[in-house]
Design a protein around this nucleic acid. Structure first.
Length: 476
DNA sequence: GAGTTTGAAACT
DNA sequence: CAGTTTCAAACTC
């Protein structure tokens, strides 16, 4: 199941990132792809305005995953669109008709044209509220194995990510309406995405997680005077444009990930899960990078030399040279080292700098997959990729091994017991599976395979051609 | 739930 | 670019 937000910028193993091969197409889809996996029928009916509201099987009869793949592969809109993809279904009874009336949450997303790839905007993965459960491995793996969830299984909803039957219980239980209701209620509660609570920013600043993620606020948000709504689309877009003009990378993924064992942008060897690093680094002073105040920690990545943090104790990986925060000299040295190294922060993959990524700003440039924002942490043990998506992501890659989720592969050697504390309650990102379960996700996919499914996909969106695409990552 | 702390974003 | 202010999330009680 496409559940994870792929907020991690991922470099291809050959050292070239997606953008490199798609120069100029740097827009990033600021979108949450919450694809209604099964029961997709309902979703489609609803979103497509199916007047009948009937709950029928896919007309084409094609496997859900195939359809999803099609949709995903067409998530690379050619134009900016407002995606009305998010919706929350609440088909607790498995009653189609009922479910059609129970879409309680609908999140619209801004999608920028020509997305560079499956990049999940980290911001799109705001934290999941306390108590939320991470997606179960079984759930994910099940879906990713290509299993097509049936109507009793999970669905990806906009703000809730309802788990497939593997969520728990035996098969028999799944057939019980009561059980199903309980199951979905549990899932809905535990996986619901966090909403913003902005009071003064009108949700038009990056303070707002929704806005930062390129998402419209939705009903469950507790924001006040919110302008981040479709109705204020122009305002939102204009504001966004302004912010981007100020900082073209403002909406870019904040966490990037490099290939396993490869030097990251700072020339250091990644040791942290997913080999990811915060693009810009944190600037923590008092949290020791051990709390979610720290963007690195929050994203589940280690601190890098890009960070200006003090007393770094990031359990995902300390800033190089800061092994002993108690050592003043060492700390000082590391700080210095960081500043020095950061001066030549370029994208390095497999030891080769990426010319196309030598953009002014730090890193965003490097990224095929972006995952930005207060993102989410990864759920390494849960991540599996869907074969279809592999093809999508690893364009031109003949290395089948590349189909293995890099995030996962990078974590293969990390013993669970030794794994740093990971905010498991957060949404995690799946490089190749850009779905934003519950999280306000943003992802982008390679613009290819725009087949019939493309039509479907686009039909769900409000095309806003007037909106600029994500700033180009190509050097001027 | 209210108040505090924190660090990013915004502003100057 | 650096310092300050604003902001909302994270955290604590």
């Amino acid at each position: 199941m496409l559940t994870m937000n792929s907020s991690i910028i991922h470099e291809n193993t050959d050292g070239r990132d997606w953008r490199t091969t798609n120069s100029g197409t740097t827009s990033f889809i600021s979108n949450i792809l919450q694809f209604p996996l099964d029961k997709a029928n309902n979703s489609e009916n609803a979103e497509f305005g199916d007047p009948s509201g009937s709950c029928k099987q896919s007309e084409s009869g094609e496997p859900v995953m195939d359809r999803m793949h099609g949709i995903l592969s067409t998530c690379l809109p050619d134009e900016l669109v407002v995606n009305d993809s998010g919706l929350k279904k609440d088909d607790k009874e498995g009653n189609c008709n009922e479910s059609n009336h129970q879409f309680s949450i609908r999140r619209r997303c801004l999608v920028f044209e020509k997305s560079p790839g499956f990049g999940l905007h980290l911001n799109s993965l705001p934290n999941i509220p306390k108590g939320q459960s991470p997606l179960s491995k079984s759930t994910l793996s099940s879906t990713n194995r290509g299993e097509v969830p049936d109507d009793n299984k999970g669905v990806v909803t906009e703000n809730s990510y309802e788990m497939p039957a593997t969520f728990g219980g035996n098969e028999a239980d799944h057939n019980s309406p009561e059980k199903k209701r309980q199951k979905f209620e549990l899932v809905e509660e535990s996986v619901a995405c966090k909403r913003c609570n902005c009071k003064r920013s009108k949700c038009l600043k990056l303070y707002c997680d929704c806005f930062a993620a390129g998402l419209y606020c939705i009903e469950p948000c507790s924001c006040q005077d919110c302008f981040n709504k479709p109705i204020h689309e122009n305002v939102v877009l204009e504001t966004r444009r302004q912010i981007e003009s100020r900082n073209p990378l403002a909406f870019a993924p904040k966490v990037i990930r490099t290939t396993n064992g490869v030097s990251d942008s700072m020339g250091e060897i990644n040791k942290t899960p997913a080999s990811a690093r915060h693009k810009r680094g944190c600037n923590c002073k008092r949290s020791s990078c051990l709390k979610k105040y720290c963007e690195c920690f929050q994203a589940g990545v280690g601190c890098s030399l890009s960070c200006r943090c003090e007393g770094c104790k990031n359990s995902f990986g300390r800033k190089e040279g800061c092994e002993s925060e108690s050592d003043g000299d060492n700390l000082e040295a590391c700080e210095k080292n960081a500043s020095e190294k950061s001066s030549h922060d370029t994208v390095i993959s497999n030891g080769q700098e990426h010319p196309d990524l030598s953009v002014p700003s730090p890193d965003i440039s490097r990224l095929p997959f972006a995952y930005s924002g207060k993102l989410a942490a990864f759920f390494p043990h849960s991540i599996k990729s869907s074969p279809q998506l592999c093809g999508t992501q690893e364009q031109g890659s003949s290395d089948t091994s590349s189909c293995k989720p890099k995030l996962e592969s990078n974590l293969d050697g990390i013993p669970e017991s030794g794994t740093p504390e990971i905010p498991k309650h957060k949404c995690f990102t799946l490089v190749s599976n850009p779905t934003s379960p519950n999280c306000k996700g943003v992802f982008s996919t390679p613009n290819h395979d725009s087949t019939s499914s493309s039509t479907k996909w686009r039909s769900r969106k409000l095309i806003l051609r007037s909106v600029p695409s994500f700033p180009s990552f190509s050097p001027p």
